[in-house]
Each structure stands twice: as structure tokens, then as C-alpha cells.
């Protein structure tokens, strides 16, 4: 098993092999993500019971929570890809990191927007300087910083290594930022509102949420592969196999 994994890992480092194998994986990710997101949405929006305090407005959780999950884990994945690039000099890791950044930024944006929309019925305001909202906003800026760095630096090799370093520095800092913001919030917390303790969710509420989370992760795999494949073709456009591929089409 271990040997199989390491072989897979080494093979994925080859752009050509990555392109071929990802073409086989792509439909599976697409099917799983569509299936799970579809089922989760219908179940969550139409059949899950109403929250006894928040009514129907709680249903936005089925988009908000998976997006927030992805927003945080994609940054960690980006940093891991950065480690792979800097330690093993595997260039495919940078293709992955580059493809992850915009997906992560948009997930963070979705989490922020749905959080703001959710805030209107529950808090009565679009924006609260809530600790979680604030650290999500900072995460959004971290994503934008990495994307901007890649845009600005030339050549591609330098940009790749710089983004990897930036993502690693960011991952070390995210817990520090998170805890400092939490503490700042408890110091400054306005007395006007307290988020009521959430009751333990019944299964009919959390199962669709779980489906949505799985669906979102599959969607991440799907969009990541699509982006990475396009990027591989762009980077390898001078190599023989890409030319063959284009001629066959």
C-alpha cells in the first residue's frame, strides 16, 4: 500500500502522467460532487426541519459551513504543496498550488457573503466584527496576497517559490492571527447580542450538511483538476506530447 502510494506520488510529478490520470479521475469527481451537492441541497433546503429559533434562515448553513471548511483547508493544502515544491522541487506541486489559490479565495468570499446574508435575520445587521467573520476576512486578504504575488513576480520559477514561501509563512501565522482575533473579540465584545448556544442538531439536519461538505470537497477536486490540467497544457505547450495531443484533436 505504502509503496503504491509513493509510486503514485512520484508519477504524479510528471506533467504528462498527471494529465492522463487526471483525465480518468475528472468524471468521478464531477459525478460525486454533483450528486452530493444536489442531494444535500434538496434535502437541506426542502426537507430538513426548521430551526426552532432561527426558522428557515438557518438553511444557509448548508452553503456557509462547507465553504468555510474549504476556505481554511485549501490554504493548508496550498502550504503543503509549497513544502513539496521547496523540498522535493516537484514542479507539479506549484501547478496544484496555483490552481488552489483562486478556488480558496472564492470559497472564502462565498463564506463571507453567506455569513453576511445570514447575519441579517439573526443579528439584524450585514456585518458584525465577530471573531470568526474577522478572521475569515483576514484569510481572504491572505489569499489575495498570494495571488497578487504570483501575478507580480517573473519568471515563473521565482513566483512559484515565492508563493510557496508566502503560503508557509501564512500557515504558521494563521493560528496566531486566529487566536489574537478571538481574544480581541472577547475584549471588545458588544453587550447587545450573544449568539445563543446552538442546540445539538438532529440527524435530519446534519446529514444533509455532511453530504454538502463531501460534495464541496469533491467539487474542489473537480475544479482543481480542471484548472491544473489547463495549467499543465499551458506550461508544457512546447513539449512533444502536448503537440501530439493538439494534433489529434
Amino acid at each position: 500500500m505504502w509503496k503504491w502510494l509513493t509510486t503514485l506520488y512520484h508519477r504524479l510529478a510528471s506533467p504528462k502522467w498527471f494529465y492522463q490520470i487526471s483525465g480518468l479521475w475528472l468524471p468521478w469527481f464531477a459525478v460525486v460532487s454533483l450528486l452530493f451537492i444536489g442531494a444535500g441541497l434538496i434535502w437541506g433546503l426542502a426537507y430538513a426541519p426548521m430551526d426552532y429559533q432561527q426558522g428557515n434562515s438557518f438553511r444557509i448553513i448548508y452553503v456557509h459551513v462547507p465553504a468555510a471548511f474549504l476556505a481554511q483547508s485549501i490554504y493548508v493544502m496550498m502550504a503543503l504543496a509549497g513544502v513539496v515544491l521547496l523540498v522535493w522541487k516537484i514542479k507539479m506541486a506549484d501547478v496544484v498550488a496555483q490552481s488552489l489559490a483562486p478556488v480558496g479565495a472564492s470559497m472564502t468570499f462565498i463564506a463571507l457573503v453567506t455569513g453576511a446574508i445570514w447575519g441579517v435575520p439573526t443579528w439584524g445587521t450585514w456585518w458584525m466584527w465577530d471573531a470568526r467573520l474577522t478572521s475569515m476576512l483576514i484569510l481572504f486578504f491572505l489569499y489575495l496576497g498570494v495571488i497578487a504575488l504570483r501575478e507580480a513576480l517573473k519568471p515563473q520559477d521565482t513566483a512559484a517559490k515565492a508563493c510557496a514561501l508566502m503560503a508557509i509563512v501564512g500557515v504558521i501565522n494563521i493560528p496566531i492571527i486566529k487566536y489574537s482575533v478571538d481574544w480581541w473579540y472577547t475584549l471588545h465584545q458588544p453587550a447587545t447580542f450573544t449568539l445563543t448556544e446552538k442546540p445539538a442538531m438532529p440527524a435530519s439536519m446534519w446529514v444533509p450538511l455532511l453530504l454538502m461538505v463531501i460534495g464541496f470537497y469533491a467539487f474542489l477536486g473537480w475544479s482543481l483538476l480542471l484548472r491544473a490540467r489547463a495549467e499543465v497544457l499551458r506550461r508544457e505547450h512546447k513539449s512533444g506530447w502536448v503537440k501530439d495531443l493538439l494534433q489529434r484533436k
Binding site: 486578504f141 496576497g145 497578487a148 504575488l149 513576480l153 508566502m166
Partner: peptide, 25 residues
Amino acid sequence: LTAGLGKSGVLMTLLVLPFYIPVLI
């Protein structure tokens, strides 16, 4: 990281400011 760029004022701000937040707090 931005030393190689001719002018990097805004980019450097975008990169570094999020990391300054704990110090500010």
C-alpha cells in the same frame, strides 16, 4: 520577496499587513 520588483509598495502592503494584525491587537 518583493526586492526584485521596481516598485512594490502596494504589493508589499497587501502581503504583510495581514501578518501585522496580531501585533496591532
